[in-house]
Amino acid sequence: MEFKECIIESFKIIEKSTNCEQLEDWEKELKNKLDKKNFIDIKKYPRIAFRFNDEDLDYFRDESNQELASLIGSSNDLKLTPREKLMLSMLWKNGDLGKEKHIINGLLNKDHEKSKKTGQIFHQFGRKLKSPDKEPIIDQHILRAFKYYQNTSNTGEYAYSEHFSKQNSKAISDYKDWITENVLANKPNPEDYLYYTDRILFGIGKYLKPYLKK
């Protein structure tokens, strides 16, 4: 099976599967077909088990709790645990301070500012954390896989003009519609279906990346 047919078959299996075991088995097959190095390493990205409760959301509604940079610049009197200090240091080192604002807006179901070209992926991640049984994870690889399927299904060709290094509002909207209509509808364990769908499409999209460069 060529990779094009393999990818189209993946979407059909996701849509028609009746239990998560079918998705898990198909992911194992894909790892052999498309190289397992393209798929999520669950040791590096374990499944998120914690939830944000109402008390957590109330905490972030206070804008003074929405920025982490101020914690790093504070005096040592601030009561941070060793683990919190380590996590803040990692965010600082990776240049990720400030991105938490987009996640918080997603958690609080605030609309993403369309004028901003960045932050859409983090905003959607916040929505995912708030509603893991309804919202998918979205990143460049998942969008690439979806757009490939969308275009090959409709026209037989891939739209090479799509630039996936920039967040694409329409692609995200189309993907979420597909998830709602074709993946979550009538599924007994929607959170589990989303989990395996995220993993499968991430691997497909990462596999496709070098093939779709101009």
Rank of each mutant, 00 (worst) to 15 (best):
A185T: 05
Y193P: 02
S75L: 05
E63D: 13
K116T: 06
E24F: 14
C6W: 05
K187Y: 10
R51V: 14
I138T: 12
S173N: 12
N65Q: 13
S70L: 09
C6G: 07
G156M: 09
K16N: 15
H112F: 10
S169W: 05
N151S: 11
S17V: 07
Y45S: 09
G203M: 11
D111C: 02
S89M: 12
K134H: 11
N154M: 06
H112A: 06
K147H: 05
Y193W: 10
Y59D: 02
T118F: 11
I172E: 09
R199I: 01
I138K: 00
E157D: 12
K117A: 12
I137Q: 13
E5V: 03
H141I: 00
F52M: 06
M90R: 12
L71S: 00
P188H: 03
H163D: 11
T152W: 09
K85M: 09
Q167V: 07
L208A: 01
K209F: 10
D174R: 08
T152D: 04
I14L: 15
P82T: 03
E9A: 14
L86S: 12
L23Q: 09
K16E: 15
N168H: 09
P190T: 14
N168S: 07
Q120E: 08
D56C: 10
N53V: 01
E181A: 11
E2D: 15
Y193D: 07
H112E: 03
G119M: 05
L71F: 11
Y160K: 13
